[in-house]
Design a binder for these strands. Structure first.
Lengths: 250, 250
DNA sequence: TAAAACTACTTTGTTGACAATTTCTGCATA
DNA sequence: TATGCAGAAATTGTCAACAAAGTAGTTTTA
């Protein structure tokens, strides 16, 4: 499906909308979304020529887009063996959650020092909304997940540290979205998560950096434990299914 | 000074030597080193054509190199106003030290859990060497600084978390080198630093993750405080010099 | 039959030219 | 003297063709 050339489209980097116009940018975004949404399968091999034809552009801009995707770790380049879409193994996901714990913990600490009272209030309102949407719609995991990211993004922003914001929003959160895609994880225990979010906001409100950091880190490492359990269970199921397959063939 | 084409040169990414061969890689490294060493002045404007001619290659590979430099934040792209070498303001440096504190703290924690006994011993030996080189050569700040980075890099490696390793070695440490370049900072209080390094190794040795993280974070935030003082003093001097200039003109 | 070498094919790396923007500069006008 | 409007110059964006390197499949030979 070739994209329309020269149409200005929206960019969702850092949750804010910016108009893009170079082909390289467009393709970068198209590819990013395709990878995150799972349209480009994990681990699948991609060729420059194939993508260039698919998107109807020449290889020049495409290569630049690829380099950028590489930089945010959505593509991996195996020297002399082409490019592949990243494969999110359990190990890699653990690495991501670990880095996230460190960075978001620091964000929370800074937010407790720097976030404006207005922003804190607004964050509190956001949590109310989340609460409502959980009560109402049991099934809309998608929105819940985005809301979850929204909460974390606001705290990152409040850190007022551009490095933290960039690392989290343009790299880690993209991968996190992808994690969800992998086997449609439901956000684990939504109400418990909100509860934890509330404690974090409370710590920020009382301007307690240490506590805010501690709670955020606990929140994230707790989330990882649950995700990991899900993944392990899945893996076990896959295994047994493979065994069944083999038995059938025998 | 055009580089020789097709000569295989060494790459120092992550402190290990790898042969590179594409022009894009070569120029990426050349430019990176030039920026870090200060050959390309901070904040100076650069043009694709200019660099392409200077390095004797076409703009294609150069653009890819530029995109990568951009990704590791050595170049900043101001839309429609060209590219500039990053300018390390005090604010940006503070951001870097903050992120570093979070990531290296986490590294130290993981190292305490995962580093092999052999590696710990070897790290201890490294500190002995540093001690010696301080005792002997008072003046060789350069080596001291590299040694310092070496220590930190080893701990990052021991985390066994590829994300942490990459973020630290391919992004933060590059900038850190550049910080030193800015006004030839002497590594602040070398003997005290070594002492702190020793405590960190000790915590790792006794497999105490919490303590290792705490000490590492304290070490880095302490280092920042000293660097900041130096920078502030410099700035004040610059100010007064400017005032003098104005007075002379008046 | 298995290993080695050659050939054809695929994919990535590189280039120079062309097109589209944007910035700069000088001139006319109020 | 300030302001705004050409036109020119410089710069970035895009393309298509060429070159080099690697891969796979086939043939040949031991």
């Amino acid at each position: 499906m070739p994209i329309q050339k020269l149409n200005t489209r929206k960019d969702t980097k850092g949750f804010e909308s910016v108009e893009t116009k170079t082909l390289s940018e467009q393709v970068f975004n198209e590819l990013k979304d395709a990878i995150i949404a799972g349209d480009l399968e994990q681990g699948s091999k991609i060729t420059e020529d194939g993508l260039a034809k698919q998107y109807g552009i020449s290889r020049g801009p495409l290569r630049e887009a690829i380099r950028r995707l590489e930089a945010i770790r959505l593509l991996v380049r195996i020297p002399h063996a082409g490019m592949r879409v990243v494969t999110l193994t359990t190990e890699i996901m653990e690495e991501i959650y670990t880095v996230r714990e460190a960075l978001e913990g620091m964000s929370a600490r800074l937010a407790a020092q720097r976030m404006s009272d207005d922003d804190i209030r607004s964050l509190s309102v956001l949590l109310d909304k989340h609460q409502n949407s959980i009560d109402e719609s049991q099934g809309k995991h998608y929105l819940q997940h985005e809301g979850n990211l929204d909460f974390h993004f606001r705290i990152a922003s409040a850190s007022n540290n551009q490095w933290l914001i960039d690392l989290l929003s343009s790299e880690l959160y993209q991968l996190l979205r992808m994690c969800r895609q992998r086997s449609g994880q439901t956000p684990a225990r939504p109400s418990k998560a909100i509860q934890e979010h509330r404690s974090i906001v409370e710590a920020i409100q009382t301007r307690d950096p240490e506590l805010a950091e501690l709670l955020m880190r606990r929140h994230i490492s707790g989330a990882w434990k649950i995700v990991k359990e899900l993944l392990d269970k899945e893996e076990a199921e896959d295994q047994s299914e493979q065994v069944k397959h083999i038995e059938e063939q025998a």
